[in-house]
Each structure stands twice: as structure tokens, then as C-alpha cells.
Design a protein around this nucleic acid. Structure first.
Lengths: 225, 225
DNA sequence: ACAAAAGGCATACGTCGTACACCTCATTCC
DNA sequence: GGAATGAGGTGTACGACGTATGCCTTTTGT
């Protein structure tokens, strides 16, 4: 029983019960050990979460170097996305860290490297990485995600007429949201605002940004401070 | 002593000690009351946080309707940004909510309204709101923000030579990050990845997106599903 | 005047992270 | 071979946390 086994168990347990329900005690029970035993392999819970993030990062494809920067970035981002998609709690975990671990820095460094190798000035590379923001990790800013928070509060489907009244109610209060939400089909039955980070939406935003980057890059944009 | 006073006290207390350190007990002590007394005005802690978010939203300027969509969006976003800037914990609080409250929906609805009034199709409006993501609230996805988490872990400035060695160490491990980070001055002494969401960076990304929206809008983009 | 509601209080339970002391081995060194 | 060492598992305990429950006091509506 070493650190790696603990982290692995933590990851699969978080997959099952969500990151909020993951406690040291629950994890200890899962690996068949007394809670305090975990502290021989992990400094504290923060360290545990750092380790879990590390595990996720290892699942992301390494950068491909033999293609143009745009393809390389796009591939890497979508690979990160698919890795995080298998661990719904990962987004929250990554964002909750207060200090970047070495593996996180390494990940970001590889991104910077792709831009620089593609001929971006450090200045522009800096700004575009900011603009990418969390999309670098494969997720849009999902407000009200419920990621890794699978509480049992999924209310029963409700009767059709109650549903209809609910819809009318929404349309009265938030006409624009309803207009927009009904314009495009969604994976789930949510409206804008609930975490509907569809693949299509994600790639839409990603490509919009990449287009912008390309344009700036071509016209030799500089921040002229 | 009503709900409003409780929320107000919670907001100012969170401003002081951060959102993580804000507990029901600590808040009760602050308003000079026993912990359980709070539950007469607030259903539970979730409800408290919802209420705090509501308070913040009220600080955001109402939408300006007599200008083009682009100015209206830009103004609203920057107003939200400045409101959230005064309450560093707000970002985390907003993102931690699992269900949108009415005031949050109203806020998002007003955004949708601006796009629709500007002639966007519901389809395009939908996608651009996704692309905006959290920037709608005035923040970039800040990884490792420490927002509202002002722990006392700010180590002393360290000696200049130790600092130099640290820098050399970083440059060896993460050459690209260091290249990029030193290309542009920052408010704080952080590198890319630590929450350096400068105003300039934010507006850079925002305008990049708005440019993209404008282009799509002009060429009558559709998702052609 | 009196019932009812609203609002504050005291106690208590279960959960959490983790400090601390102890124990039990396997390994290492003479 | 026997003692020292140290890594790894254990047991107990502490102080936080959110909050259920029940009681009491004060205000309010009739």
C-alpha cells in the first residue's frame, strides 16, 4: 500500500460518490484501513487532492509536436476534455487548488511551448493563454455544474401538465432565456445557465478563440504597452 | 434583525475572512446571536450563499438599453467585474451554487435580451452566451485563484539570492512559462497559472470574443444542425 | 385579553480533518 | 544473532462544523 494506490482508490471513489462526499474516513474505509493510516502516504487532504489532479493529468495525451500550433493546441485541449469528462469531479478539484503543483505547471508549460514553437511572440502567447483560461483544461466555465456533486436531488419527472405550467412560468419570467434555450437542442433538458457544456458548444467557443488567435498572430499583434 | 441584515453581515464578514472561513457559527457570533438563531432567517447554509450571491448581483449596474448590443454587453460585463472585484469570494460562491436562483436567471435573461435585441438569432445568441461563459460574470477562469481564501500562507519575501535561485530553478523546469511570464509585466509577481486576471488580460479576451461574435453576426452564421 | 406566530436560545448528534502516542514488524548494522 | 531503526498501521481524542429538536420570550393580529 503506497501513495499511488491511495490516489488511485481516491480517484475511483470520487468517480462513484463525487468529490464532496469524498472524506478521508470514507476513503480509508474503502481501502480497508483506519483513517489515520492514510496520513503515512499523504500529507493532508489538500495533498490528496493535488495527487488526484496529478493522476488526471497523466491521462491527458502528450503534446503532438509535428503539426501546426493550432492543431496541436486543439488536440491537446480536446484530449484534456475527454480525460476530465471521465472524472466529473476533476474540474472542481482543479479549480479548488490554491497553488499549482509541478505537474500542473508542466502541463501549462507544454501549452506555452506549443504557442512559442508556432512562432507566437511571448507577449501574444501570454495573452492567448489567458484568453483560453479554463478551456486549456477542456472545460467551459460551467455555472451550476453539479460536477462531481451527484446529490440525490433529481426530482421525479413530474406530470406533463405540471411540466407545461412550469414552462409557461419560465417563459413569463425569463422570456429571453427560454427563447434561446428552445432554439437549440441540448443533451439534457436544461436551460442556459445550468451546466450544459455540450461538446458542440465547447468546440464552438474553442474555435472562435483559435480563429481570433490566428488573426492576431498573422497581423503581428502586440500589446504595445 | 431580518434576512437582509444577516446577508449583509455575511457579505462583509466574507470580505474580511474569506468564504472558506465563513461558518454559520462565526457569522452568528458576528451578528451577536446564537448559531441556531440564523436558521430563522435562512433555510440552511446553501440558502445563505444563494442570498449572498443575490446581494452581489444587486450591485451590478442594470443593463443599458439605448446603445448597440456590443457596448451594452461590454458595459454590463465590466460592471459585473467591478462588483465582483470588491468581493473576492464571489466568484467561488457563484460557481459553487448547484441551482440557479431567480435573480441569477434574471441576470442571465437580461444578457440574452441584449443579444436578441441586437438582432442575434436565438441560435447564435445561445452559442455566444456559452462562449462567454463565466466572463458574463466578469471573471476569467482563474486557476489557483486563492479568491476569498486569504490564508496566512504568504511566506516572507525571501532573500534576493534565494529568489534568484528560485527563478533559475523555474526557468530550468518550465522555460516556456518563464519566457511568457517575463514578457509582460503583472500586477503581482506571479507566473501564468496563478490567478493573474488583470484587467488588461480580461478585456483582451472579452474583446477577442466580441470581435468573433460580431463577425459571425454579420455573416449571418447559423449552426446548421 | 388572548391565541398565535415569530424569533432567539440551549442542548445534542453525527461528521469532518487531523494531532499525538503507541504498537508491530521488517530491515539494517555491529 | 541480537539490538537499533524506522516505516507503516492503530486507537483515542479534540475542536470545528452544519443543523434537528424543543423550549422560551416577545411581538402581533383579532
Amino acid at each position: 500500500m503506497n501513495r499511488e494506490r491511495v490516489l488511485e482508490a481516491a480517484v475511483t471513489l470520487a468517480d462513484e460518490i463525487g468529490i464532496d462526499a469524498l472524506s478521508m474516513r470514507r476513503l480509508a474505509q474503502e481501502v480497508g484501513v483506519v483513517p489515520m493510516a492514510l496520513y503515512k502516504h499523504v500529507a493532508d487532504k489538500e495533498d490528496l487532492l493535488d495527487g488526484m489532479v496529478e493522476v488526471i493529468i497523466r491521462e491527458i495525451d502528450p503534446p503532438v509536436l509535428d503539426s501546426c500550433w493550432r492543431d496541436a493546441i486543439r488536440h491537446r485541449v480536446l484530449s484534456a476534455r475527454s480525460a476530465l469528462h471521465h472524472h466529473r469531479w476533476a474540474r472542481q478539484a482543479i479549480e479548488s487548488r490554491s497553488k499549482p503543483t509541478p505537474s500542473v505547471l508542466e502541463y501549462q508549460d507544454s501549452f506555452a511551448g506549443i504557442f512559442l514553437a508556432g512562432g507566437f511572440t511571448p507577449d501574444l502567447a501570454h495573452h492567448v493563454m489567458h484568453a483560453l483560461g479554463g478551456r486549456m483544461w477542456g472545460f467551459t466555465q460551467e455555472l451550476f455544474g453539479g460536477s462531481g456533486n451527484p446529490k440525490g436531488n433529481a426530482q421525479p419527472p413530474a406530470s406533463p401538465d405540471a411540466q407545461a405550467e412550469m414552462f409557461a412560468h419560465m417563459a413569463r419570467l425569463y422570456p429571453n432565456i427560454v427563447t434561446i434555450a428552445t432554439a437549440t437542442p441540448h443533451d439534457d433538458d436544461s436551460v442556459v445557465g445550468r451546466g450544459c457544456d455540450d461538446q458542440y458548444e465547447f468546440e464552438f467557443a474553442l474555435d472562435l478563440l483559435l480563429d481570433g488567435f490566428e488573426r492576431l498572430h498573422r497581423r503581428r499583434w502586440t500589446s504595445e504597452r
